[in-house]
Design a protein around this nucleic acid. Structure first.
Lengths: 218, 218
DNA sequence: TTAGAGTCAATGATAGACAAAAGACACTCA
DNA sequence: TGAGTGTCTTTTGTCTATCATTGACTCTAA
């Protein structure tokens, strides 16, 4: 058995992403190396490696001699992320049929159940998590490792605006339930083996518009 | 005017990729830090940052306590890269119509010209370069920065097998010209604004089969 | 031949140091 | 008063030195 062997770099990457997600590091904020390395309790070299990785992931941007800062997405960039995301999901569905991965179907169902309960309680952060799990499972239907990897990367970038989303959250239970229903329609089409319907449902999924609206003033 | 300010890390990343591409670092080869840092004339810290970046790019894999080695792609992985690539190109075309980027169209034409001449002279490495330029320009038709970035990343991974490809090269001028012709058909469909034909041409592009065959024994 | 112990080499991480460059600040001159 | 300039400080980019940890290898002994 292989024990988890995470280097400090991996831990730092995860921790910084978490700090961004919970809002302790805001988009646009300057990440000074000494401060961050003290905060995380590590020395500069591994922190610098972590920042490089984050920069490559598009979470952070590095300006020569001016250090790193948390990326602040423009409306156009959010739009691009969502359109690319949808293209990847469409490709996943097309590849998945006619033999979608069984375990992933189970995972989609589980995520949908959690999402339903969370929606009834207006537990926004649980909805966001379940939503993520649902879509990752959808992509996994295709059993395409590289696709999954690319998709996860995109999801990480999306998390940048999720914390904004948490702050500006003003939805009602009705809005949430509508979202859940859209997911249910999509999942049912997949389970029925109806590729055309599933793709149609995906095209009408319509999260993109609502989310990019939040960014219209950026 | 902004002078190019490349850190040693950036230079190291580029140089290591070049060394892999020209075959001086072979897939599967172990990359010892001290040896490489001496070779590149830099110290270990920036080299380690470069290796992290390359690992994240999928060019190199890092095993805990066992260092980094050049990734050796399996047939399945090559297949995945090509299928994902085609999905991205399809999305690019769909997004590009009805207003493809004018400059990118020019770039495609330029690349095709170069490819044609290179094919006549069986200059394989020039063909590979022109091929890359052609496809990058195709994706750029969509003016979608994140898509372009994702696509370039995939191209870098593909370069891993290109050097293999160079070694096992046994094609004739006829094969090359057939490839050039496929590209020309595709470009003409795009220039005629015929989206359906372009997508059809892309689907029949058929580089994937020939290339994955090279990997059938991996 | 093979199992086990000991040795060696490489990685993962730290600390300290320093040059170079960017930004901040005050100062001069118009 | 305001623009331009020069200095100072801070931070990054990089190097060197060092050390613990752990894989890998080798050598010995059963």
């Amino acid at each position: 058995m292989q024990i988890d062997q995470h280097s400090l770099v991996d831990l730092a990457v995860a921790e910084i992403q978490r700090l961004i997600y919970v809002g302790e590091l805001a988009p646009g904020e300057n990440l000074r190396e000494e401060r961050l390395s003290n905060l995380l309790g590590i020395s500069r070299p591994p922190l610098r490696e972590a920042l490089r990785v984050l920069a490559h992931k598009g979470i952070v941007e590095q300006l020569p001699r001016r250090g790193a800062r948390v990326v602040k997405l423009s409306a156009k960039q959010v739009d691009e992320i969502y359109s690319l995301r949808q293209a990847l999901e469409r490709f996943a569905l097309e590849s998945a049929f006619p033999n979608p991965d069984a375990q992933s179907l189970i995972n989609m169902n589980t995520a949908l159940e959690i999402m339903t309960k969370a929606a009834e309680q207006s537990d926004h952060s649980a909805i966001v998590r379940a939503n993520r799990d649902f879509h990752v499972a959808l992509v996994d239907l295709a059993r395409h490792e590289r696709l999954t990897k690319t998709y996860l990367e995109l999801m990480d970038q999306m998390q940048l605006c999720m914390s904004d989303n948490l702050r500006t959250e003003t939805r009602t239970v009705g809005d949430y339930m509508a979202g859940v229903k859209r997911h249910r329609v999509l999942l049912e089409a997949i389970e029925n083996g109806n590729a055309a319907d599933a793709l149609e449902a995906l095209a009408n999924h319509g999260e993109r518009a609502t989310l990019s609206e939040l960014y219209s003033d950026h």
